[in-house]
């Protein structure tokens, strides 16, 4: 964008997707990935799944946020405003998940099914759910970027987080009931597809900045990410693999691996497209 076009035409959001902002994109996705995996592990009572989810949050999400921070020594201050700031809430939830997750994993090894283990498990599960939800709300509460300002965004992210978690747990645990897991995949994939279509449909009839974002996604510079990254790789291919698994009642190891890769690529594409499509409305009448 040329400097004289800034806020005169639709101005793309770049802070959270370009340069160092790429780390924010990855950390938002890591939150969905880790939270979803932790919850899936919890649902299937699968300790490796929980550990994996916990590690993703601790190392990948935490590391990416630290790497992005301009002033890491002041990160603790970011917990001070949970009453109004989603970033504060997210940081608190992340720290709580790290603490409760560590306790829960420890109790799972030494005091399995004890009262305290169940309590910590519930608390960690709530935090994991909160981390997924905060990812969507952090973006959807930004009214300045009308494309994000939708209640559907957190739901879409939630569905994708569950889907990714489910496929990852399928990949690391051979004892998971394939038919039940693939049925879950199918439901989540179809629901995600419907949400994406509804989201873009509503955006196409929204205010000018939202329409412009939808146009960029469906016909413009971001169309390859939508059609190839999200729909083909992220939805159609996993649908085909999950459907075959559901019909046959079994999925080969390579199929599960492809499924996981497809869902992760789809999730990365989804968050990238959402961040990249964000536009600010012009301040000058020339852009309206």
């Amino acid at each position: 964008m040329r400097s004289y076009e800034w806020m005169v035409t639709y101005t793309p959001q770049t802070v959270w997707i370009e340069g160092k902002g790429v780390l924010i994109w990855l950390s938002l996705y890591a939150g969905m990935l880790g939270g979803g995996t932790y919850l899936a592990g919890l649902y299937f009572n699968n300790l490796p799944g929980m550990v994996l989810g916990w590690l993703i949050i601790l190392i990948i999400k935490g590391g990416l946020h630290l790497a992005h921070a301009e002033r890491p020594s002041r990160l603790w201050r970011m917990m001070l405003r949970p009453q109004t700031s989603w970033i504060s809430r997210g940081l608190i939830l992340t720290i709580l998940l790290i603490v409760f997750g560590a306790l829960q994993i420890a109790f799972s090894l030494w005091q399995r099914a004890s009262g305290i283990e169940i309590l910590v498990r519930v608390l960690a599960g709530i935090c994991a759910f909160g981390i997924i939800v905060y990812t969507g709300f952090t973006m959807s509460c930004v009214r300045g970027v009308p494309f994000w300002n939708s209640a559907l965004l957190p739901v879409l992210f939630l569905l994708w987080a569950f889907l990714t978690g489910l496929t990852l747990v399928q990949a690391i645990d051979a004892h998971v009931d394939t038919r039940a897991a693939t049925a879950g995949n199918l439901v989540l994939l179809i629901a995600s597809l419907i949400f994406v279509v509804i989201y873009l449909g509503i955006a196409s009839y929204g205010e000018p900045a939202v329409k412009e974002s939808a146009r960029a996604l469906t016909k413009g510079r971001l169309a390859p990410i939508l059609f190839i990254g999200i729909i083909l790789i992220g939805m159609v291919m996993p649908l085909a693999i999950s459907f075959s698994g559901y019909v046959t009642g079994a999925l080969s190891a390579p199929s599960v691996l492809v499924l996981v890769v497809c869902v992760i690529v789809g999730g990365l594409s989804l968050t990238y497209a959402a961040l990249k499509a964000g536009l600010y409305s012009p301040l000058s009448p020339a852009g309206s």
């Binding site: 800034w6 806020m7 101005t11 959001q13 802070v15 959270w16 902002g21 921070a69 301009e70 002033r71 002041r74 990160l75 201050r77 970011m78 700031s85 970033i87 952090t138 509460c141 930004v142 009214r143 300045g144 970027v145 600010y280 409305s281 301040l283």
Partner: peptide
């Protein structure tokens, strides 16, 4: 002295 540089305010300001 309190700003951590998270840039959430930069994102949130509709007037940039």
């Amino acid at each position: 002295n309190k700003c951590s540089g998270c840039e959430y305010c930069v994102i949130a300001c509709p007037y940039q």
